[in-house]
């Protein structure tokens, strides 16, 4: 279980101070899918950054993050890297945005986490990387490919393979389907759902897309201006929104669907 209590995040740019998260309380469970929904600027990406404690200089974070009973806020940067990031919580970013390092092969980028965190040899790690690619539906031989040789959807599969490398307990997926075409979106969503069930992962889906969120998630968390304004099981929230913002998001969705049907 990831328990977040009173999480505050401030960015300092010059003399201005921007509050990105304003007292967020949240519970994320394993073997379940939680969607964090919000418009751009609502603080949802900041939340992802904060959960991994990957903050840019000038940012200050306060509050409590407990993961499987461990207090994450008290870990040093070294401990975070050695025993928390990727091994407990891993991350999938928007695939079409080039999140891979362009000059390294996919195999290398997947294998290196195994070498670092699981102390595997280069060959063992490469073998495991190939298996991971296969698990996400890519040919094993693609370990030798470079990111630019892949399409957006393929890149996203590779990113998921990389995220699964160290058998994390939680997977944060930040807008994993944005900038993909509709069919590819559906494929990626199916893949993520299947893996969650298969591996008993806690999937945290961060998206602005309420339709996607309601199709995938067991629980919804609605974020607005750095605060959690609504939260609950997906069905209940859709039937009886607890906050005006959820209602307006739903309204927008309905208008969109209506215009699609025209």
């Amino acid at each position: 279980m990831i328990a977040v209590e009173g999480l505050r995040l401030d960015y300092r740019t010059g003399i201005r101070r921007v509050r990105a998260l304003d007292g967020v309380d949240l519970v994320l469970r394993r073997a379940a899918t939680t969607a964090i929904v919000g418009e751009s600027g609502s603080g949802k990406s900041s939340l992802v950054t904060a959960l991994l404690r990957l903050l840019p200089p000038g940012a200050s974070l306060s509050g409590k993050i407990t993961v499987e009973g461990r207090n994450i806020m008290s870990l040093s940067e070294k401990e975070l890297s050695a025993s928390y990031r990727w091994t407990t919580v891993s991350l999938v970013l928007q695939g079409a945005m080039n999140a891979f390092t362009p000059v390294l092969t996919l195999g290398r980028q997947i294998a290196e986490v195994l070498e670092v965190h699981r102390r595997l040899s280069r060959t063992e790690a490469m073998g495991k990387a190939a298996a991971l690619l296969e698990e996400t539906g890519l040919p094993r031989s693609w370990t030798a490919r470079y990111p630019h040789e892949l399409s957006g959807g393929q890149k996203q599969r590779a990113a998921i393979a990389m995220a699964l490398a160290c058998d994390p307990l939680y997977l944060l997926a930040d807008e994993p389907t944005t900038a993909l075409d509709v069919i590819t979106q559906a494929e990626i969503v199916t893949l993520l759902k299947g893996l969650t069930r298969w591996r008993g992962l806690g999937l945290v889906l961060v998206t602005h897309d309420l339709a996607l969120a309601s199709a995938v998630a067991d629980r919804l968390v609605v974020l607005q201006a750095g605060r959690v304004v609504d939260e609950g099981p997906t069905e209940r929230l859709l039937d009886a929104p607890g906050h005006g913002h959820t209602t307006s998001l739903l309204e927008a969705l309905k208008t969109l669907e209506a215009s699609d049907h025209d």
Binding site: L54, A82, R85, W86, T87, S90, A99, F100, T101, V113
Partner: peptide, 21 residues
């Protein structure tokens, strides 16, 4: 850049981040 953000999220040591990526 984004790739380096991801590489940091991977919990890689500083030297790998800096030189390899």
């Amino acid at each position: 850049s984004e790739p380096l953000f991801l590489a940091r999220a991977k919990g890689l040591p500083e030297s790998i981040l800096l030189w390899r990526h």
